[in-house]
Design a protein around this nucleic acid. Structure first.
Lengths: 133, 133
DNA sequence: TGTATATTTGTAACATTGCTGCAAATATAT
DNA sequence: ATATATTTGCAGCAATGTTACAAATATACA
């Protein structure tokens, strides 16, 4: 955690380390409510500010899916090694409501005559492994 | 407009007809601010309620893209004729900020071992035709 | 067409989400 | 170890979204 903060020119504080740990320790994307539950010294304002800084530094990314509150996730393995393009898909389970970042080996390429696409994000809804039974 | 409301078992009111017209008359997805400007009898609460009902009846769909306020759009041509799956892509122009629903002739198919995908939505960012110059 | 019933609208009041200014607390650089 | 810079937490505010209830409007049906 410390290393990550330092390499992004951010002061190392307990709060920031904790926020990072929480995101790292969750396989799924994290909604605000989870931070609220898991942070020892939860403070709404500081949390918003911390997440904002992390977003600016691109340590984390934000996932907005309709009908869901905003979730936050780290760009794990992939992003740092292969380019910084999100070669993954955001999957929302309609049953347990968790949002997961799924890595994709082959990412679709879309070409449009009128639009110049810089970034493409895939959002899927359905059933996750544990909810399929 | 009237026909659409009736076929969805909704009372036909001037407000609802106006909201529908606004969405129909815009090529791009419509943010709340546009309703505020264009509605003759703008009322925040009624608008929220109206949009909610339209969403439930699946007359319109909601587009949430991070860093943007929610936009609303009709499922035009495509959706009604071919299935009710959104065979289109949501494009956000990073310059003019408009969000457009773009129809796709070939929609990518994604298969994942652990996840059962019901719906796939594509969100792209880049430059729209008029902003490319 | 007129009237009873059901639905929708607008007001008020409130909850949630998110931001900013400022002083106190903490981290960093030397 | 201390001066400086940054971060935190509080207060207060703005925007977004919801609910309860009475008045207004739409619908159903005689």
């Amino acid at each position: 955690m410390k290393k990550i903060l330092k390499s992004n020119q951010l002061s190392v504080t307990p709060f920031r380390k904790e926020v990072l740990s929480i995101i790292y320790n969750h396989k799924e994307a994290v909604p605000l409510s989870v931070f609220e539950q898991e942070l020892k010294n939860y403070n709404r304002i500081t949390l918003y500010r911390t997440l904002k800084v992390f977003l600016e530094k691109k340590i984390i990314h934000e996932i907005a899916m309709s009908g869901q509150d905003t979730h936050y996730a780290i760009c794990k393995e992939d992003c740092s090694t292969i380019k910084h393009e999100h070669q993954h898909l955001h999957f929302k389970c309609k049953k347990c409501k968790t949002i997961t970042c799924v890595s994709l080996t082959k990412f679709p390429k879309i070409e449009l005559p009128l639009y110049q696409i810089d970034q493409l994000e895939l959002q899927a809804t359905g059933l996750c492994n544990s909810c399929q039974s």
